[in-house]
Design a protein around this nucleic acid. Structure first.
Lengths: 148, 148
DNA sequence: GGCCATTGCGCAATGT
DNA sequence: CACATTGCGCAATGGC
């Protein structure tokens, strides 16, 4: 599912942004006037900004502009790639941890069993000794109950 | 670096998309003529299609169009939100698993130690038997009373 | 002040 | 046919 899907007529590829770009460029030259004040949602009033001093409207025709855009596009792609990779890594990490968890649980099971056997042996001996001989030493009778 | 950054006066914030939307809608009516033919990259030339057969170029003015767009925009937002949430969940899962791992390791350590103690006891006992002695303990001389 | 990185958003193609 | 996903470009902003 979900290959990369590289649309043939995709605008995206390197130079082809033309479509969009073109559209933008041709359709609207430079942003007419942004923000009509309204701005529905939680509308903030725009600061009393006009466009008096702006560095420059930056024509969409400008070489500067296109260059900047392209660079940003690259950066964006890179960033997104990185992001995706990270997500994937995280997913992998989950699996890794799950595996380790299983391993640990298995080990615990084993140890528990061993312990149980030994304790039983101990008890047996104790009984024998109690019946015939001296108890090995009573001090250690404490059943640990550490578990949980 | 890079917190989530919730810009207070963020432009992107919902309301202002108006600009974009507006810009698009108002600025350009329908794409003049897209497809520069060339389409440099791997670009396919567009089939000699005009817009004869296709379902329809779908005017950007069309109500249909705008409605479709808006719906899609919603869907996109939703999808992205979901995606983000999932990522976050995954991250959380990692932490959860890490914690559990630690717990398990602690338990293993404990069990191992217990086991070790028991084994030592056993060995000791074995040795004693091997020596044919039962120095159960010097203090524990219950029946001994050699007098003095 | 510039440059790259991130991020929200809309568009369009594609998947389900 | 409607909704979901995804790649992409744009613009604003964060950070150095």
């Amino acid at each position: 599912m979900s290959k990369i899907s590289q649309p043939a007529s995709s605008p995206g590829v390197n130079g082809i942004s033309v479509i969009h770009t073109q559209a933008h460029a041709s359709g609207l030259q430079q942003v007419p006037q942004l923000v009509p004040a309204g701005s529905g949602g939680g509308g903030k009033a725009v600061p009393p900004s006009k466009q008096s001093k702006k560095s420059s409207p930056l024509d969409r025709n400008s070489d500067e502009y296109r260059q900047r855009r392209e660079r940003n596009n690259m950066a964006v792609k890179k960033s997104r790639l990185k992001s995706k990779q990270k997500a994937q890594d995280t997913l992998q990490r989950v699996n890794q941890l799950k595996e380790e968890n299983e391993r640990l649980e298995a080990k615990i099971k084993l140890l528990t069993k061993e312990l149980s056997v030994l304790k039983d042996l101990f008890l047996e001996h104790a009984h024998n000794l109690a019946d015939n001989v001296q108890p090995i030493s009573t001090e250690n009778t404490s059943s640990d109950n550490t578990g949980q």
